[in-house]
Design a protein around this nucleic acid. Structure first.
Length: 430
DNA sequence: TCTGGGGTCCTAGGACCC
DNA sequence: TCTGGGGTCCTAGGACCC
């Protein structure tokens, strides 16, 4: 049987992760509705159970629910990615002592290979979950299944139904069938709104029905992706366990502006900041980029106002991770996309970004016949990185970022970076 | 009157994820 | 007034080649 031979995979998923991180360091947040906001304090990207119970949806814009929040005392926090990133690292560190093979899928989810635990896998998962709770303070749920898709499904069941006490094991085909008959297709990993609509039109509404659909039909109404999904639901692994993270292909730094940008100068300042950050990220990962895309656009939610968007692309040769190269290329590209008068063309741009593609390990960068030898540049960026690493991000920036910084993203409700800044350590009253 | 076919590469756009 | 950011993968279709 396929189920018997397929290796058990556990998915451990942190509950309401960003909210849980905040609660670890601020106990007053327990028992009340809490939401964490997106960049620019625009919408809710994480919600406590109490906030979900009030009907606050994922991605709900804050300005539309101010009344509701006031009425129910909803506590809103700006996102604090420095804190969440560090807490995520701590969770993974704990998991390492529970399995030699991990596939870190996202900031709050990790697949764990449970091969070799036999009948004890459920108990092992429960111990792992308890250890994460004790050592990091973060609550989690665990789903176990013969494929990644089924372990995701198991995790969903563990979160939804308290009967599982946080660990749902779907290795048994009968239990699995019972659960799958009760899960709507929209909750399955890989089924988004478009696929859900197509499947519903075919009369397919539950995970069990999707599993039993002919593979060829899956391919026909979807693509090979949907066909693989159906196979995964049948217990046939099609999604690789990636314990070694694959080489990343692209990288982006994009931000909404706190105040709309109306002149080319202000836009160029924001683009300079984004390109600077993108170059830093490249160097941190030991990569160089071959293609740079700049984009900026007006507010798409204001259809009554004139709209404009541009996304000029520039090739970088030689491939580079140098701040000056990327800033020069980005600003030049942005200028190419700009139309009209530099002091203002009648448009208010609300978002801009820099996207890097064709990434390559720095060591593999192709040599160029006439490659300029620029040892000073390398030393300069090294010094720049060292200063910003030691004294904090943006201690030293290019003057081209400007001084008024009116375009910077809003984050007015951010909690302290408790675990990564000495000056922001939590204080304890004895 | 008759007007190829097959292959590769690249890109834009869609769909999905957290 | 106020609506996130950062990724991956797949496909269709055009350009180009022989």
């Amino acid at each position: 049987m396929l189920e018997a031979s397929a290796a058990p995979i556990a998915l451990i998923d942190c509950n309401n992760f960003y909210v849980s991180c905040e609660r670890v360091f601020d106990p007053s947040l327990h028992g009340i509705p809490v939401i964490v906001l997106s960049n620019n304090d625009g919408c809710a990207v994480a919600r406590s159970d109490e906030a979900k119970a009030l009907g606050i949806e994922m991605g709900a814009p804050v300005f539309k629910m101010r009344e509701l929040m006031e009425r129910h005392g909803v506590k809103a926090l700006s996102s604090n990615y420095t804190l969440y990133g560090d807490m995520s690292r701590r969770v993974v560190e704990v998991l390492h002592s529970y399995s030699p093979r991990l596939d870190v899928y996202s900031i709050d989810e990790t697949f764990v290979d449970l091969t070799g635990f036999g009948d004890r896998m459920e108990a092992h998962a429960a111990r792992m979950r308890a250890a994460v709770r004790i050592e990091t303070g973060i609550p989690t749920c665990v789903g176990i299944g013969p494929t990644k898709t089924l372990s995701k499904l198991a995790n969903y069941a563990a979160k939804k139904n308290p009967i599982f006490s946080g660990v749902c094991n779907l290795m048994n085909a009968d239990v699995r069938d019972y659960v799958m008959r009760r899960i709507p297709i929209g909750e399955i990993w890989g089924v988004g709104s478009a696929t859900e609509a197509k499947l519903t039109a075919q009369g397919i509404k539950t995970a069990a029905e999707l599993r039993d659909m002919p593979l060829a039909l899956g391919r026909k109404i979807g693509t090979v992706v949907l066909e693989r999904l159906v196979a995964e639901l049948r217990g046939i692994p099609c999604v690789d366990f990636e314990d070694v993270p694959p080489q990343r292909k692209g990288m982006a730094v994009t931000r909404s502006a706190g105040t709309p940008m109306t002149s080319f100068d202000v836009l160029a300042q924001a683009i300079t900041a984004h390109a600077t950050r993108a170059a830093e990220k490249l160097r941190q990962h030991g990569l160089v980029a071959g293609t740079l895309t700049v984009f900026y656009h007006t507010n798409p939610h204001k259809s009554d106002r004139p709209q404009h968007s541009a996304s000029p692309i520039i090739r970088l040769h030689p491939m580079s991770n140098h701040t000056f190269d990327l800033v020069d290329a980005a600003v030049a590209a942005a200028r190419r996309g700009w139309k009209g008068d530099p002091t203002g063309n009648g448009h208010s741009y609300t978002k801009a970004g820099v996207i890097l593609d064709d990434l390559l390990a720095e060591a593999d960068r192709p040599a160029m016949l006439f490659q300029p030898d620029r040892p000073h540049d390398a030393r300069l960026t090294a010094a720049l990185d060292a200063i910003n690493d030691r004294f904090g991000k943006k201690t030293m920036v290019l003057a081209r970022e400007g001084f008024d910084r009116r375009w910077t993203t809003r984050a007015e409700l951010r909690s302290p970076r408790y675990t990564t800044r000495l000056s922001e350590l939590p204080t304890v009253q004895v």
